[in-house]
Design a protein around this nucleic acid. Structure first.
Length: 485
DNA sequence: TTTTGAGTTGTTCGA
DNA sequence: GTCGAACAACTCAAA
């Protein structure tokens, strides 16, 4: 109960939950901790584009963030609360808000990038200096990056050993539900930094409005994440191991943007999949479950690598790649970005990305290999484009995957492994349906021509010529990568 | 300390 | 058409 003097009574002081990459109410350890404390809870979000060490979000991710914040704000409103939104360097804003509201505690879920970690440390010491409790939790990962260790107590650099050891540590913890008792408040935040309307963050495009395709393809936020999860488990988990590689089959979970912004937690996904599998009697289910969970494992591994190699988004993990003679070719880069390389599967993928903010995983590997090997362009140029155009652009996954394709990563693909975009198309899009959907100029070609349009008798004039020849580009890549040794 | 087996996702060539 | 081997050498992880 509040005392007459209000501020002097410790029980009357609120707790703050600082939302970041955990825009959900379910399985949110920071929120649960605040609810357990029996204080009134103030929910805040800080849009920080001013801390140098924190990489600004790309355009598609900003669009996602807007919707996810809107949904979270609506959910909190329904429960009697409010999401207070601020702009500015988090290390300054959070302690100010805490101070202005006489908060007793600030809770949040951890982030793992270097700049984010530094910002959080600064906030923590500022709060402690004000005698405000500051606690952080694991809301983002199945396993903390420091908890999986090699036999000699170091971090892993190879996925399979990492994942084997993670299994030995034990199953991921069970997800928390939405707290049953939440004393949310909207009465606070009168003083201190100025809170803003979401629209003031200008996260969504004005004109030109390039987000039409994104809106048509996605629903953002926690409720949509749960619906996507259930839909996937019911429709596709059984056959996941067999058809996940076919980009026109829509057999993947498409949970990546939800996981990126924490609209759903990895723990929720993991345990829901396990439960769905044990309720199934399909003979495929075990293989499929393992395959699906290992994809979550790759996400874990990427965060493990990022945590132990903070420069990963910018620097080659293998220093010898610093000597690589990447080409400078703006025209080729532009052709790749625009989906006009003359290779149907590559172009289909790049157009799917531009149109929907997402690309099928199999096709991501093909287009990435094409940029790095066929075009000999620096993986960072591809990484930057993905960062700007993917709704699921993730600080760990994006960098780790690009470095893996380039061969500069921790566990690298052998340099002679050069994806052949024609064969990959014939193997994984045998009927050409995926190409027809995204490259309409080629829609009339037969399945036997569609991945080799140059051999077709009639081909739409608007489809570009190949910007490199397959055989020559492959040999050039092999020579360039071999020269590194 | 040394040794050993293994390493997400492929392609090509020759039998 | 199918199949196995070759494609480098290196680093990692564990014994």
């Amino acid at each position: 109960m509040a005392s007459k003097t209000g501020f002097d009574d410790d029980n009357d002081r609120p707790a703050i939950v600082w939302f970041r990459d955990d825009l959900r109410l379910g399985d949110n350890p920071a929120l649960t901790a605040a609810a357990t404390g029996d204080r009134e809870i103030i929910c805040i979000f800080v849009h920080d584009e001013e801390s140098d060490a924190i990489r600004p979000l790309g355009g598609a991710a900003r669009w996602w963030l807007h919707g996810a914040l809107q949904e979270l704000a609506d959910d909190l409103q329904r429960l009697g609360g409010q999401l207070w939104i601020y702009r500015g360097p988090a290390a300054v804003v959070v302690p100010q808000v805490a101070n202005a509201n006489n908060a007793a505690a600030v809770y949040w879920n951890r982030r793992y990038g270097l700049g984010e970690r530094h910002a959080d440390e600064t906030v923590k010491s500022a709060l402690k200096a004000q005698r405000i409790e500051a606690r952080s939790f694991n809301g983002h990962l199945l396993y903390e990056p420091w908890s999986i260790r090699t036999g000699s107590d170091g971090p892993f650099r190879v996925f399979s050993a990492f994942w084997r050891t993670a299994h030995e540590v034990g199953a991921p913890e069970r997800p928390l539900g939405v707290p049953a008792q939440l004393r949310l408040t909207r009465r606070r935040c009168a003083s201190g930094p100025e809170a803003l309307d979401l629209a003031r963050l200008a996260l969504e495009p004005g004109s030109p409005d390039w987000a039409k395709g994104l809106r048509a393809n996605w629903r953002r936020g926690e409720a949509a994440a749960q619906a996507a999860l259930q839909g996937f488990l019911q429709e596709h988990l059984t056959d996941y191991a067999d058809i996940r590689d076919f980009p026109d089959r829509a057999a993947t979970s498409k949970l990546s943007p939800y996981l990126r912004f924490g609209n759903i937690s990895a723990r929720e996904v993991w345990h829901a999949a396990t439960a769905a599998a044990s309720a199934s009697n399909s003979s495929n289910i075990h293989r499929s479950l393992e395959k699906f969970q290992s994809e979550l494992g790759w996400r874990e591994f990427s965060y493990h690598l990022l945590y132990h190699n903070p420069q990963m988004p910018k620097q080659n993990l293998r220093p010898k790649f610093d000597q690589m003679a990447w080409r400078a070719d703006r025209k080729a880069l532009r052709a790749w970005q625009n989906g006009r390389t003359g290779y149907p599967l590559v172009d289909a993928g790049m157009r799917e990305l531009w149109s929907t903010g997402w690309m099928h995983n199999r096709v991501r590997m093909v287009v990435a290999s094409f940029l790095v090997k066929h075009l000999l362009l620096d993986w960072r140029q591809g990484e930057s484009w993905f960062w700007d155009t993917l709704v699921d652009a993730d600080p760990a996954n994006n960098a780790a995957s690009w470095q893996w394709v380039a061969g500069s990563g921790a566990d690298a693909a052998p340099f002679f492994r050069v994806f052949n975009p024609i064969l990959q198309g014939e193997k994984f899009d045998p009927g050409g349906e995926y190409v027809r959907r995204w490259v309409p100029e080629l829609a009339s070609l037969s399945a036997s021509d569609i991945h080799r349009p140059w051999q077709a008798s009639k081909i739409g004039k608007t489809y570009p010529e190949k910007i490199v020849e397959q055989d020559g580009a492959r040999q050039r890549a092999l020579d360039a990568f071999k020269a590194l040794d």
